[in-house]
């Protein structure tokens, strides 16, 4: 299998690096999440700055996937706040049953007195437009061709014209090395090809933030490289990214910051060098010794 050509100007296809509105693109504060009685996220706080790539590592069941699913509200949270681009994700804050227009500006809105109420479905959908997500199992739409997968959301969510969407879609396909696969259905593509199209599909919405949920875990080993190549290129060009991954090589090379999670808690975070070479926590050391 030949390594596909990944363009060195990936984001050029969507008109350059999307510009997040705030310096801190993701601001998660004291997030708690339960599955029934199981406490899966325990006071998780994490900030991701503009153009930063954060890789979350940790043993399975540690809550890292659940956490990034909370960031675009695919999972509800029970307490805490997640802001993306300055917007509170998934919820409205209501003090004593009254709508609060400007969180934190009122007189008697101390942190404890406000209540989170889930936002309207339409508003949540709108917030998700800014957040691209790439799944472990690709989740391409099987009844649509590669190009149709990519132009679907720009056309029907953003209202982009078909011509414009096609131009962008083709540019994206070309830059992930799949120009020839434009009219092919996903089930005729390899896992690596499907995942590259899934990345292109997410990018087509010009998101301010990209979430990757173990994007290479379902791939055959020989296809991992081509997907990581696309992700490295995105990081180099300045996309803001949170990546849940077991690819330590990728983390070492690309991450600005590595976050170690275990048992629903952020155990340790730092530069790849700090975390991989001189971890301060015993749990990090134990995890790394198993995986490296």
């Amino acid at each position: 299998m030949t390594t596909p050509h990944i363009s060195s100007d990936l984001l050029g296809a969507i008109g350059g690096v999307p510009r997040p509105e705030t310096d801190v693109v993701v601001d998660a504060r004291d997030v708690n999440k339960f599955f029934g009685r199981l406490h899966v996220l325990k006071n998780v706080s994490l900030q991701v700055k503009r153009q930063e790539t954060v890789v979350i590592i940790g043993p399975s069941g540690s809550g890292k996937t659940t956490f990034i699913r909370c960031v675009n509200h695919l999972e509800k949270i029970q307490s805490g706040r997640i802001f993306v681009n300055g917007h509170l994700i998934g919820y409205r804050e209501t003090p004593a049953g009254r709508k609060l227009r400007i969180p934190g500006r009122g007189k008697n809105h101390a942190e404890g007195s406000t209540k989170l109420v889930e936002d309207k479905e339409r508003n949540i959908a709108h917030q998700r437009e800014e957040i691209g997500m790439v799944f472990q199992r690709f989740n391409l739409f099987p009844h649509m061709t590669a190009i149709e997968n990519i132009i679907e959301a720009p056309m029907h969510v953003r209202g982009t014209s078909k011509d414009e969407a096609m131009v962008m879609g083709r540019a994206l396909l070309e830059r992930v090395g799949l120009a020839a696969k434009e009219n092919v259905y996903p089930n005729q593509l390899s896992g690596g090809q499907q995942q590259r199209i899934a990345i292109a599909r997410a990018l087509a919405m010009k998101p301010a933030l990209m979430l990757f949920d173990e994007p290479t875990s379902a791939l055959d080993p020989e296809m991992i490289g081509e997907v990581l190549e696309v992700m490295k290129e995105l990081a180099r060009e300045g996309m803001t990214m949170i990546v849940v991954s077991h690819e330590m090589g990728f983390a070492r090379e690309v991450a600005n910051r590595v976050v170690m999670m275990d048992d629903g808690v952020v155990v340790e975070e730092g530069t790849p060098d700090q975390v991989f070479s001189s971890p301060t926590q015993e749990r990090t050391r134990a995890f790394l010794s198993k995986i490296l």
């Binding site: 695919l74 998700r128 799944f135 989740n139 679907e152 969510v157 599909r201």
Partner: peptide
């Protein structure tokens, strides 16, 4: 989930 994550 994929559709939701695209803002649909």
């Amino acid at each position: 989930e994929a559709a939701k994550s695209l803002g649909m």
